[in-house]
Design a protein around this nucleic acid. Sequence first.
DNA 1: CCTACCGATCGGTAGG
DNA 2: CCTACCGATCGGTAGG
Lengths: 169, 169
Amino acid sequence: MFVSKGFMATTTRDIADAVGMRSGSPFYHFRSKQELLKTVILEGLEAGQQRLQAAIAGIDDPEQRLRRMMRAHLDHLFASDCQTPLLLYEVRWLEPSARVEVAAVADRYQQPWQTTLDELALLGRLPSSAPPLRLLLFGMLNWSSQWFRPDGDLSLDAIAEAAADLLLA
Amino acid sequence: MFVSKGFMATTTRDIADAVGMRSGSPFYHFRSKQELLKTVILEGLEAGQQRLQAAIAGIDDPEQRLRRMMRAHLDHLFASDCQTPLLLYEVRWLEPSARVEVAAVADRYQQPWQTTLDELALLGRLPSSAPPLRLLLFGMLNWSSQWFRPDGDLSLDAIAEAAADLLLA
DNA sequence: CCTACCGATCGGTAGG
DNA sequence: CCTACCGATCGGTAGG
C-alpha cells in the first residue's frame, strides 16, 4: 500500500482494514506509522540483497554476473511482495535517524555492483567504472518503475538486456 | 514546496503563508489544491520545452544536439524555479483527466529526443534508437535527482557528459 | 482577498 | 487486540 498509494496517502486505518484489524490495533505492533515504513523498507532491502546474492552465486565472468544482477534487480523492483526500490521514494517521510539506518543498508546493496563494475573496467571491458557510472546504471533500471507496464511490448528481460548492452558496448 | 515537501505534505496553508495570504485565499485563485498542482506542472513543462528548444536552435550535428539537450534537461531538473521532472512524481495525486492532460504535454517534450536519437541511429552513430533507449536515457538523467548534490564532487556537466559518452560509445 | 467556520479525517492513546 | 475517544489538522466554503 505504501508503494501503490504512497506513505502519506495510506492511513493506518487502511492498513488495519487490510489485515482485518481495528483502527487502533496497528499501534500494538508498531510504535508509529513511521516505524511501520522503516520496517517494511528494511525487510525489502534484506530480501533484495538475498535475491541478488542468489543470482550471482558461482558466476565468475563479470559480464555474466552484471547481467544477472541487472535482471535480479528489475525482478525485485516489480515483485509484488517487496518493491523496495519503489519504497525508497518514501524514505523522505522517515525521521533523520531512521533515514540514516536505511541508507546504511542501501549502501551495502550497492557494494557488489561497484565491485563487478571495477572488475569489468580492470579487464578493459568497460571504459571506466568511476562515478557516476554506477548511479547512471541504477538510473536506467530504477526509472523503469515510472514507465514499465507488465502488459506492454517490453519484457523485463528486454529492458535488462538493452541497459546491459548500452553499458558494455 | 510541492517538490521539496511533496504534494501531500504541503498544505494550502503553507502555500498561503509563503505568499503572505490567509488560509482561505488560495481558493480564490485556484479551485482546488489539485488544480494548483496541475497548473505548476504544466507551467514547468512549458518552461522546460522552451529551454530545450533554445538549447538546440541551429545545432545541426545530432551528437552535439543530443549533448546539449541532456545538459539542458539536467539544468531544468535542478533549476530552483521549475523542477518539473521532479514534479512529475506528484502527478499521481491528480485526478485521471488532469493526468491525461499532463501526459500529453510530457509526451510532446519527448518528441525532439526521439527525433535526435533516430537521426543518430540512421547515421550509424548509435546501434539502435528503438525502445527502450530513450527511456533508459531519461532514467540516467532523471534518477540523478535522487543522488545529485550541488556541493558534491560531480557537476551537472560531468553527469551529462558521462551519460552521453555511455550512449554514444 | 479576509474572517470565521465546517465536516471529515487522521495518528495515536488509555484502559481493558 | 478492541472500544472509545482525543487533539490537531486540513481542504474547502459562505459571506462580505
